[in-house]
């Protein structure tokens, strides 16, 4: 994965580019914060969905782009976050932000717990293993009646209103993007990219690749768990099939691939595209999954670097880039 944007030639220190990026993020947060004041519910709904996807995709992109970890188990952490969030809200009456923080912790801990098994070999086994993990958790949830079995859990109190939820998820997306910025614009980025470029040579430089990969996995999982938590809070009723479903994992994967793996803007563009495509196609209920499939095939085939990669190649935008 060429990381054209991240590794574009730099003049001066790493932090100037980073500061610009942080400033843009803060600016975006500041502007979008006031969206609920003038935008209709529909745009808030789409914004909410995009933000949830963005959080997931940022994490996934960090994993794949930095450590070469291709996961099909995102739903494990979404589901975990969803159950943890509703459990905390229902049983303890925890405030949502606190519940989300605990979700993040739970996601990170789960990632750390399963990593010895999943990191044993590189590549394919990790992918297959994450897929199995999600299925295992789903089966566990379906079977264990303490978690509501197939019925799931229903949020007892009404969730906050949409504008409030939107702002929560906006902050979440901001934090996720900020984290990724920190990972790609500070000295951490050097370590991450070294591991991705050449794990062995990186080890010879004193880097502990296992810990670096674990760090990326834990971080991405914590983000996914928070996304799951806020999604559950919005739904108000969750059950294992919806929250641990393969659909989540596939959605994330397609967002990043469509956007452009390892590219800084890939997750954002991918999330926007997937939300927009889903909305556009849902009006053709008979064949929308088939159409989505065809679009996916065409994009993978003809835009190997995703939409962002394609856009950068276009002469005009390419020049602006340079």
């Amino acid at each position: 994965m060429s990381d054209a944007i991240v590794s574009s030639p730099r003049v001066g220190s790493a932090s100037t580019g980073g500061l610009v990026e942080v400033a843009v993020l803060v600016g975006a947060l500041g502007v979008l914060w006031f969206v609920p004041d003038f935008a209709g519910d529909y745009w808030l709904q789409l914004g909410f969905r995009t933000c949830v996807y963005l959080v997931l995709a940022q994490g996934w992109n960090l994993m794949a782009g930095s450590a070469g970890l291709v996961s099909l188990g995102t739903s494990s952490f979404i589901g975990l976050g969803a159950y943890a969030a509703l459990g905390l809200l229902n049983r303890v009456g925890a405030p949502l932000p606190l519940a989300l923080l605990i979700c993040a912790t739970a996601g990170g801990v789960l990632a750390a717990l399963v990593s010895p098994a999943l990191f044993r070999l590189r590549g394919l086994y990790f992918t297959v293993g994450t897929l199995a993990l999600a299925e295992l958790l789903r089966l566990l949830m379906v079977n264990v009646s303490a978690f509501g079995g197939a019925t799931g859990i229903i949020l007892q109190e009404d969730p906050p209103a949409l504008p409030v939820l939107f702002r929560y998820v906006l902050v979440l997306a901001f934090l996720a993007s900020l984290t990724i910025t920190l990972c790609t614009r500070t000295r951490v980025s050097v370590i991450l990219r070294a591991v991705r470029d050449d794990e062995d040579a990186a080890a010879q430089m004193g880097i502990r690749p296992y810990r670096v990969k674990l760090g990326a996995f834990v971080l991405a999982s914590a983000l996914a768990a928070m996304a799951g938590g806020i999604q559950a809070a919005k739904l108000g009723a969750i059950e294992p099939y919806g929250m641990f479903g393969l659909q989540w994992s596939i959605d994330v994967l397609s967002m990043v691939i469509i956007g452009g793996v390892g590219l800084r803007l890939g997750p954002l563009v991918g999330a926007l595209f997937v939300v927009a495509l889903g909305e556009a196609l849902a009006d053709y209920p008979e064949a929308h999954t088939a159409i989505a499939g065809v679009i996916l095939i065409v994009l993978i085939r003809f835009a190997p670097q995703g939409i962002v990669g394609l856009a950068v190649k276009l002469p005009l935008i390419g020049r602006v880039q340079a």
Binding site: L253, S254, A290, G293, V294, I300, P304
Partner: peptide
Amino acid sequence: AEAQMMTMFAVSI
């Protein structure tokens, strides 16, 4: 691996 895997997922849906 991802490109072929995602393509087969698309075939699946």
